[in-house]
Amino acid sequence: MLSDEAVPSTEIAVERISMVFGKKDHEVEALRDVSFEIYKNEFVSLLGPSGCGKSTLLRLMADLLEPTSGRITIGQEHPREMRLRRKFGIVFQNPTLFEWRTVKDNIELPLEVFGIKKSEYSKISDQLLEMVGLTPFKHHYPWQLSGGMQQRVAIARALSLDPPILFMDEPFSALDEFTKEKLQLDLLEIKKKTNKTIVFVTHSIPEAVFLSDRVIVLSSHPGRVHSILNMDREEGSPSLVRQSGLFHEMTAAVRKCFYKESDSLDGQMV
């Protein structure tokens, strides 16, 4: 855990990022002057209401978009360099599985693209299937699976190249509450096993508090960093954490950011 290390090393540095969409007459300012750092092996959530630019921010880190101004570096490199070296995996809100591929074939897609030999990647995908508990379903097609299982496949796929970083864009927000809680526990388990750096976009306060080492709270219109909160994570069984006093304390702390914010918003909107 973070607190054990003396000096955490920076994995992702976001420096004075601004992002404007649209052409001259219809400009929309999505992000204004956003800066923060994400440390190695950390679980960070980007939390905020819709329209705060959290997904945009994730896409900027993943080199799927170019910022209007500012700079992002991942391990001292440009995100493009990291993308070309396949240093991160992505999970979207929708599973985004290829419907003509079976579960196993879907997980192997990045490996194929990377040009790994078939004999090798079959072993990798089998391990990943085991990890997400889908071994019995490996020859099923995506449409034969439930939403939660599909999202597990997507997570396994993102891990298949064993990238040091995992970007997740509201991966559980389309799932029902029970599936969501199960997958959150699974994700923490995966995090413990693989020790990835995870950047997790969400609009759920409890989810962010439950999962993260730190929560970056964004405010909207335009998106700016409101505050960065350290979740002093408790050791112990994660399922107990949800009922702990600290969890409620932290949730309340995060919630306070928004109440202050919404008060001021009310004032502006009148």
């Binding site: 969409f21 219809h26 999505a30 997904s55 978009l65």
Partner: peptide, 8 residues
């Protein structure tokens, strides 16, 4: 559409 369904 102006943006042709590009991601936001």
């Amino acid at each position: 559409r102006a943006n042709g369904g590009e991601p936001r």
